[in-house]
C-alpha cells in the first residue's frame, strides 16, 4: 500500500537521515502509524477540506497509514490526547483565551506542530483583522501561530494543495528529512506579502520574469508587466505562496533531479 501511495505521489522510497532533526525521525522510527490531530483555530476549514481531496489515496491513508486521533469535525473527542503530529489550521486570536490555551496545549501534547495553511503559517487574510465587529468587537489581533509557540513545519497555501499535504504526511511517516527541510525553513516565514517579490527578488536583481509567482497566486493579485510581477495589493491576502513558489527564493535542486529521475 505504501508503495502505491508513493507511486501516486511520485515519491522516492528510501528515507534519508539527518541527525539534527530527531523529532521527525522519532515519529517515523518509533511509531510507524503516527497519531495525527487536526486543530482548528481561526481558520475556515479549507485546509482540512483540501486534505480530503486526496481522493485516490485518502481511504488507505486514513485506515492503514495514520490514525486521526483528534479534531473537531473529524473525531468525537473533547480531551486533547497526545499526538505525534498536530496540524494546526488558522491563526490565533490574542483576545480569545480559549484559542490561546488550546494552542499552548497543542504544543505540549504534540511531537510536531505543523502550521497547516497560510492562516496558521503567515496570518494570511486574518492579517487584515482589526476588531470592531459584533459579537466580539474586541477580537482584534490575529497572529500566525509561530508568534506564540514553536512551530516545526509550515505548509503554507490558501489552502495548501491536496498534493503537498499528502506528500508531507508521507514524508513525515518515512522520516524523509530532505523533503521536509524547506517546510522547516518556512516555519520562520511569518511576515508574508505579495510585496516580498519586489523586496526579495526584483530589488535583489534575482527576478527572471518566469511568471511562476503570478501562476501560483491563489487570488490573482499578480499579473506580469514587462516581465516583472505587478501586485494589486488590494487583492493580496498575504498568503506568501508567490514568494514560496518563486524559483529564485529557494531552490530544491536535488529533490527535483530525484523526482525527474535525472
Amino acid at each position: 500500500m505504501l508503495a502505491r501511495i508513493k507511486e501516486f505521489l511520485g515519491m522516492e522510497s528510501k528515507p534519508k537521515e539527518v541527525a539534527s532533526e530527531q523529532e521527525v525521525e522519532k515519529v517515523a522510527e518509533e511509531k510507524p502509524k503516527p497519531r495525527i490531530g487536526y486543530i482548528h483555530l481561526s481558520g475556515c476549514t479549507g485546509d482540512g477540506m483540501s486534505l480530503t481531496e486526496n481522493y485516490d489515496i485518502l481511504a488507505p491513508l486514513l485506515t492503514e497509514m495514520i490514525d486521526i486521533v483528534y479534531g473537531q469535525t473529524l473525531v468525537d473527542l473533547w480531551e486533547m490526547p497526545e499526538m505525534d503530529i498536530a496540524l494546526v489550521e488558522g491563526s490565533v486570536c490574542l483576545q480569545d483565551e480559549h484559542s490561546m490555551h488550546e494552542l499552548m496545549e497543542v504544543r505540549e501534547k504534540a511531537g510536531l506542530v505543523v502550521a497547516f495553511g497560510s492562516c496558521a503559517a503567515t496570518g494570511c487574510f486574518t492579517r487584515y483583522s482589526r476588531g470592531g465587529q459584533q459579537a466580539q468587537p474586541s477580537h482584534e489581533s490575529f497572529v500566525p501561530i509561530a508568534d506564540i509557540v514553536k512551530v516545526d513545519l509550515a505548509i503554507p497555501g490558501c489552502p495548501p494543495s491536496p498534493e503537498i499535504i499528502a506528500k508531507t504526511v508521507v514524508a513525515a511517516i518515512n522520516g524523509d528529512m530532505d523533503y521536509l527541510q524547506p517546510m522547516m525553513d518556512l516555519a520562520g516565514y511569518t511576515e508574508a506579502c505579495g510585496c516580498d517579490l519586489q523586496y526579495k527578488v526584483v530589488n535583489q536583481a534575482l527576478c527572471i520574469g518566469c511568471g511562476t509567482c503570478a501562476m501560483a497566486c491563489q487570488t490573482r493579485a499578480l499579473t506580469m508587466t514587462n516581465g516583472r510581477p505587478e501586485l494589486n495589493s488590494a487583492r493580496c491576502i498575504k498568503c506568501g505562496i508567490c514568494y514560496v513558489q518563486c524559483p529564485r527564493s529557494w531552490w530544491p535542486a536535488d529533490r527535483i533531479n530525484k523526482d525527474l529521475g535525472l
Binding site: S50, P156, G157, E163, C210, T212, A216, V244
Partner: peptide, 18 residues
C-alpha cells in the same frame, strides 16, 4: 529558468492545486 519554476512547483506544489 522557467523550467525551474515549473519543476519546483511539481516537487513542492504548496498552493498549486491539481
Amino acid at each position: 529558468c522557467q523550467t525551474m519554476g515549473i519543476r519546483k512547483m511539481q516537487s513542492y506544489p504548496f498552493g498549486v492545486r491539481f
